[in-house]
Design a protein around this nucleic acid. Structure first.
Lengths: 157, 157
DNA sequence: TGTTAATATCTGTTTTGACATTTATTAGGG
DNA sequence: CCCTAATAAATGTCAAAACAGATATTAACA
């Protein structure tokens, strides 16, 4: 029952269950992936969350999104989107404007500077993903995707 | 090419590659799992990292571990283990003692209070893991484990 | 219409994380 | 042995996350 992570982290006893082994493996794997992503973003001074927000904004053309729409789409949750946006706004990467019809919502758009920062990273990120997962064939990747989505849907419900 | 996460987060365009879709799905799934884990740990006032450290220490019997051994085994990396240990030590959950033969290393052991805190959580955590992944059969879980380990080994190398 | 609830975002405060540096101790080569 | 490098852990400092609560605006309904 002790799998390869069990050996690697020096654990002597078994995992409490197969489910636990999968959860811990998944968390550790995600942490390591995030580490490599941080490494490639560091040179341009973006955190993974900031990068994620910029990419979300690039994907929605010029009309932008409200804060809560951004929050909903993010890969990792962030309790304090306001100040995250403060920081990228100060660097000129996004633009904020209060909506006129509903003055509660603030519409966020990506600036040309934001777009250019992103495009600098596109090739690097593409290469990184290939480097991280390219060794697995497409069939195994599709299988993995199917299984992961099964987990995620259950965890998000 | 646009998978279910693509639909869910409202993305209109496709992922840049299958590899990217897998990476993003994996990160988002891990984030949601971590969220539910935080929720069950919150009542006892432990962070996931603190809980992880205590479990590592429980697994190695009484002789304990050095700081760097703990760091190596952790699920998520932590640059500041010293102060994490400060906090759990102040709560009486671990014990610190400098080694006599090599006075550079500090040996950390879990206290009875630490063990009892953990055992309070065992049932809850077991149930949580079942709730999160129990809907997938063992066969699919084993398949997922195999695929995830393939990713992790490559990412850790 | 007035009053309360709901929504969207922001702010204040405290804790935690990140990063670089520092101290203490041991190991190794000349 | 002495000097330098290597290792283990701790510390100082600053940025970012967590948590609670506040503000502004709109919606809902008696």
């Amino acid at each position: 029952m002790v799998g390869k992570l069990g050996e690697e982290i020096g654990k002597t006893g078994p995992f409490a269950s197969l489910e636990e082994e999968v959860v811990l493996n998944l968390l550790r794997t995600a942490d390591r992936l995030m580490g490599t992503i941080e490494d490639v973003l560091k040179p341009v001074g973006l955190s993974p969350t900031q990068y994620n927000v910029l990419r979300i904004l690039r994907g929605v053309s010029a009309q932008g999104l409200s804060c809560q729409e951004i929050a909903r789409r993010m890969i990792t949750r962030d309790a304090d989107l306001t100040r995250l946006l403060d920081r990228v706004q100060q660097r000129g990467l996004v633009h904020r404007q209060r909506q006129t019809d509903d003055r509660r919502v603030v519409r966020i758009t990506i600036t040309p500077a934001g777009l250019s920062t992103l495009s600098e990273l596109d090739r690097t990120v593409l290469d990184l993903n290939k480097k991280l997962l390219g060794h697995m064939g497409d069939d195994r990747l599709k299988l993995l995707l199917d299984l992961i989505e099964d987990v995620r849907k259950h965890a998000e419900a």
